[in-house]
Design a protein around this nucleic acid. Structure first.
Lengths: 181, 181
DNA sequence: CCATCGCAGTTCGGTCAATGAACTATCGGA
DNA sequence: TCCGATAGTTCATTGACCGAACTGCGATGG
């Protein structure tokens, strides 16, 4: 059986036909090159095509394709924004991907960042660190991603990058808050 | 043996140069096509080249490349097995990827499996379900992946597949226990 | 001791996606 | 209406993926 029929075609050539596993289904949606990095930026508040392109260095054709696939899959929604430009915002289905990104991020910090985490996450309410599992070490509550603040960690190196996204992320920042207010 | 060496070049065309983020580093290791499915099978106890190939339907050249990359990255280790064949086993670094696979699996079950989870995970000691976060709903303990039992869930469809891995996974099975005893 | 079998991994030609640069389209404002 | 900024497309090149066939090796058995 061929699952190329979700929403008018799987993300180009990246399906896993024959795998009857929810991991395979999930990877058909978020498993392509660049996709999780795009979503990470979306969690950080990036909403505009040009900001994704500048921050990620992804070819514009690929970015266009990925934003379209994610929108078709219901992970992002393309709302008309302030100046007539489309704004790509995470849906509730997309927000549920946060644990995936958080666990991968932590694994990368653990094994590929000798100087410690590159970014740290705190509870906006009491500024205490939040564990991988999403529990605030201060108040003990389960913190939804909308209440998280991301800040530079000890392992974050100077990059010299000057794009708006990198600049905005150099200071603590509430997750999902749009970079362009 | 074709281990595309990690020193002197990231895994061909799959690097994310310029991204100073641990997510990008992690994706360079586990973000390529098929890689997470290979690791999922490794958690399920698959250790042999032919079993991976038969269960996943991945081209053998790609499988060979991925197993080599993962071994070079220290996620798998290639120990000589029973009959002179190499056995690919997860290292401790690889075991730490379980939360990543578990969260993705749950997201896929949630959104792409109307009949419920395709597989369920229980605590081997008391047979109670274990949450996404790894906590046993029976005893409340944090259950390491080595103490998990995976069993078919309500959403698991009949596939007609007859390969050894699919067959072995049709009944409850301790995670990481080798399929070929 | 040699033939055979099963499994591991490589080779190879065709196909398809990623890349990067240049180009076009569209909207808002002066 | 003209202009500048941003979004998204086109296109030739490069490289990864695919699938099938092939090679090589250790174990088995007559």
């Amino acid at each position: 059986m061929n699952y190329r029929s979700y929403a008018g075609g799987m993300p180009l050539g990246k399906d896993y036909t024959g795998q009857y596993c929810s991991l395979a289904r999930a990877l058909e949606v978020v498993g392509e090159r660049w996709t999780l990095l795009i979503l990470r930026d979306a969690f950080f508040g990036v909403r505009r095509f040009g900001d994704f392109a500048a921050h990620l260095g992804v070819p514009r054709a690929v970015l266009s394709d990925r934003l379209g696939s994610l929108t078709a899959a219901g992970v992002l929604t393309g709302a008309p924004g302030r100046h007539g430009h489309t704004e790509y915002v995470l849906t509730s289905k997309g927000l549920e991907l946060w644990p995936v990104i958080r666990t991968l991020l932590d694994w990368g910090d653990e094994h590929y960042s000798a100087a410690g985490p590159r970014r740290v996450f705190r509870h906006g309410a009491d500024d205490a660190p939040v564990t991988t599992g999403g529990v605030c070490t201060g108040c003990g509550q389960d913190v939804p991603v909308t209440d998280l603040v991301v800040a530079p960690g000890p392992g974050l190196a100077e990059t010299g990058a000057t794009d708006p996204v990198t600049t905005a992320l150099a200071t603590p920042h509430r997750m999902l808050a749009p970079l362009h207010a």
